[in-house]
């Protein structure tokens, strides 16, 4: 299987934003955009739905807090009761700082690992070659030529309005 891609590059982030918006309005399928730095508003221009990662963070945080709270009660009140200054064994205020830290640890580390896994960015992964300037001074938009009505010249004339710098076709083997 292979698919035909159209790689277009721009010199300014505002051109990329406008071109992305226009491409979506014309019904082209956007594979991805590549920029040297984070361009605010690009996610909206690309029509991406907002991430579900926040929900994962919430669940990770709650499970970290619950697990740690249970662990502390189990270790210092159930399995081996420890009397600290005559306070009740299940003294929740004493458990709060550690519970809080473990909640942050679970949510923070878990979110990063989950993000890397979702984007398939594990160690040893080869970087995908997109375009020379994508890490320097070029803003790249990649479209998928996914139907017969896709005419490269039409895209070129559309993108030239946004000061298109370069346009090239690629065949990607999937």
């Amino acid at each position: 299987m292979s698919r035909r891609l159209l790689v277009s590059s721009f010199a300014h982030e505002n051109d990329l934003l406008a071109a992305t918006q226009a491409a979506r309005e014309h019904g082209y399928t956007i594979l991805d955009a590549y920029t040297p730095f984070a361009v605010h508003g690009l996610d909206k221009a690309m029509g991406m739905r907002s991430t579900r990662l926040a929900w994962a963070t919430l669940i990770l945080g709650i499970s970290g807090a619950v697990a740690k709270l249970w662990f502390q009660i189990w270790t210092s009140a159930t399995s081996w009761p420890v009397n600290v200054g005559g306070k009740p064994l299940k003294s929740v205020p004493a458990f709060v700082p550690v519970t809080f830290e473990v909640m942050v640890l679970f949510a923070g580390v878990g979110t990063v690992l989950l993000f890397l896994a979702m984007r398939k960015l594990w160690p040893g992964k080869k970087p995908a070659f997109i375009y020379d300037g994508a890490t320097n001074d070029r803003f790249i938009l990649v479209l998928i030529q996914d139907n017969a009505s896709f005419v490269v010249e039409e895209v070129r004339s559309l993108f030239e309005r946004f000061h298109l710098v370069d346009l090239e076709e690629r065949i990607e083997r999937v």
């Binding site: 200054g85 306070k87 205020p93 004493a94 709060v96 700082p97």
Partner: peptide
């Protein structure tokens, strides 16, 4: 708030 509370609660 909790930092103030927990130290006083702990030391008693």
């Amino acid at each position: 708030w909790f930092s103030q509370y927990v130290l006083i609660w702990y030391a008693n």
